[in-house]
Design a protein around this nucleic acid. Sequence first.
DNA 1: TTCCATGTTCCGCA
DNA 2: TTGCGGAACATGGA
Length: 258
Amino acid sequence: VPELPEVEIYRRYFARHALGQPVASVQVTDRRILHRATVPALRKALVGSSFHHTRRHGKHFFAQADTGWLYLHFGMTGDLHYGAAPKFSRLIITFENDAVLAFEDMRLFGRVGVVRDPDQFIREHRLGPDPLDPTFGAGGFAELLGRRRGAVKSLLMNQRNIAGLGNLWVDEILYQTGVHPRRSVEKIGRTKRQEMFRVMGRILNSAIERQERAASYPKNWLIENRDEGAECRRCGGRITRTVVFGRTTYYCAAHQRG
DNA sequence: TTCCATGTTCCGCA
DNA sequence: TTGCGGAACATGGA
């Protein structure tokens, strides 16, 4: 379930459980999970040292050990478990106190690696700004939309424009701001851009808080109503299903305007 | 059996 | 260079 809010939850989980304990062993159960890394390189970077800092940029997670950073991408089915290692664990870190931290990823779209410098990683992968970064404001968002063209959903999904939004939360932002997913960014005015930035931050922060408290989402959020033909809880219109940017897209045909 | 899935990357075309 | 559609990757659930 990993878009920005979910990865932020994993980051907090990692920071809560896995800091300050020396790593005793590292086990990789399927090498296909590795990103530009080998098992010996992973062990060399982690075994004997402790994690002391975590960082997230978009959907990318980094944990700083003594001589390098562990890198995790959660793909489509990535998850973290502190305690017992579940069935589809791909990376298992055992600490010297016998505690276990497992990175689970059934579908193997996730990635595990070692990174020398997260900033360099972000530059190399040409990732856009993280939408919750305090230095990225409404002005930066509006400017970003101004130098791109095409469908707004495609723009928001592309990690080189903004890092962290995925299919579900992009649909949610467009739904709550009344913007049709195929609307071209040129047709989004200044006021609407500011509103989109504001709503984006509110949705992402709220999703993080709700997941942290294991609370459900409001019933009038799209994420609770992703069903073709369902009644829109905001305007009574119909929820429509289509494909944009290659992804299943739900929107309200009545109040989301192209 | 068939379709679908909250992600990323690569290829070809305009 | 930019934008976009399609395919590939891998696996389980409905």
